[in-house]
C-alpha cells in the first residue's frame, strides 16, 4: 500500500515537475485546485499519478503513457501552450487567452 499523498505533497510534486521542464503551473486558482485534488485522488486510489482528465485502466503498465507528466505533454505544450489538462503551460503562455480542450493525442 502506497503512502497516501496530501494536497501539499501533490502541489510540491507538480511544482517540481514544472520547474524541471521549464513550464509553469496553471495560474487559475480553481482549475489548479481541481487538478491537484484530481491527481491526489488518483494517486491515493491507484498508487500512481494517473492523468486526472483521462480514464485509467487501473493498471500501471497500461496507463504508463498517461502518468503525469504524460508522454503527450511536451508536444501539446509546444503546439498549444498547455497540456491536455491545462496543468502545465508554456512559460510565456498568455493567461488572458481562453482555455479550450485541445485534441486528444493519445491513440
Amino acid at each position: 500500500m502506497n503512502k497516501q499523498k496530501s494536497y501539499e505533497d501533490v502541489k510540491e510534486y507538480v511544482t517540481r515537475i514544472s520547474i524541471r521542464n521549464g513550464w509553469k503551473l496553471n495560474s487559475d486558482k480553481e482549475q489548479l485546485d481541481d487538478l491537484i485534488t484530481g491527481l491526489q485522488a488518483n494517486f491515493n486510489r491507484l498508487g500512481y499519478y494517473n492523468c486526472p482528465c483521462r480514464d485509467s485502466q487501473e493498471d500501471h503498465q497500461l496507463d504508463r503513457d498517461i502518468i503525469c507528466p504524460c508522454r503527450y505533454a511536451e508536444q501539446d505544450i509546444k503546439d498549444y501552450g498547455y497540456c491536455y489538462c491545462t496543468l502545465y503551460q508554456q512559460l510565456d503562455f498568455d493567461i488572458s487567452r481562453p482555455l479550450r480542450m485541445i485534441p486528444e493525442r493519445r491513440p
Partner: peptide, 10 residues
C-alpha cells in the same frame, strides 16, 4: 464524466 477531471468539473 470522470470524477477527477478538471474539464468534467467545469
Amino acid at each position: 464524466t470522470i470524477s477527477t477531471c478538471m474539464w468534467c468539473k467545469k
